[in-house]
Write a protein that binds this DNA or RNA. Structure first.
Lengths: 151, 151
DNA sequence: ATATTTATATCATGTGCTTATGTAAATTGG
DNA sequence: CCAATTTACATAAGCACATGATATAAATAT
């Protein structure tokens, strides 16, 4: 299979799978961007506001506001950087982690129900595709490359 | 692998893949819901407003407004039902199909660029996972079951 | 030391969602 | 059948969340 054909097929499947994902996600009071940002913070550790904005594909003012809301809700914490007095390092709190965990538990539970309806063969195929999916999920995004100083 | 473990692993990968998908989708002036609704209309044919709302996980008023906007943009058409004078059957237009196609082309192009960075082994694994992904994408949603008349 | 750049915040505005409610068509029950 | 209820959609008011323009303070460069 050519890379282009693979991209086309994947793109088509992804479109519908994202829809499935959205219908699986419990109404936790978090917007898609909020949930994705929290997940990034949990996975990558404390991050600068600007990096978060680039990573989630929103503008910097939008991220400033989102972080303010998340901070008010107690899900993240603003911290200062020691090297640079301008930067804000955003970190997830225990409460933020707990909220994420609840969200995931709900989604996983519904997904398990759906997988149960699938045939064992399809389940096996999905299980064997996990490393590839993980590779897909782990692909560096543009914004990860932003921090390449020209030396 | 147990179904529950599979659900957990899938759920975790999906969370990050959705983020990738969002960053791949071109800014076509369509919201996520708008794009998903258009895609549903293309795939399933004309649909009632209420069914669309349930399928996309928004309220009925939200769908009424969305359809009005899409109609103003010429991407969908409102039609009447012959059996029931209350229902509105929403259909995608040729322009709507063209818009969807452009969106997909942009996404596919970026995805192809990313896949090229992956190793051939990972590409092969993804290719072999396509049937399973397709099965996952084809799983009926709750709202598809709504139409089960009690006889 | 001044000018420029960078990181974040603030403000004004617009879109898209929600809840509450209205209207007309279909269905139900006496 | 006709009044009451239900169903499908529309409308309205308000809030969440995004954008673009701009301000401020810290760091860097000339």
């Amino acid at each position: 299979m050519t890379p282009d054909a693979l991209a086309g097929a994947l793109s088509s499947d992804l479109e519908r799978i994202v829809g499935l994902f959205r219908s699986l996600s419990p109404a936790s009071g978090l917007s898609m961007t909020a949930a994705a940002t929290l997940a990034s913070l949990e996975r990558l550790g404390p991050q600068r506001l600007t990096l978060l904005a680039a990573r989630e594909g929103v503008t910097q003012p939008a991220m400033t506001q989102l972080i303010s809301r998340l901070e008010d809700s107690g899900l993240v914490r603003r911290g200062a950087s020691q090297e640079d007095g301008r930067v804000v390092l955003v970190a997830i709190t225990d409460e933020g982690r707990a909220t994420l965990a609840r969200r995931r538990a709900g989604r996983t539970e519904r997904l398990a129900g759906i997988l149960a309806q699938l045939g064992p063969d399809h389940r096996a195929a999905l299980a064997s595709a996990l490393p590839a999916l993980d590779a897909l999920a782990s692909i560096p995004r543009d914004d990860d490359l932003v921090r390449t100083p020209a030396r």
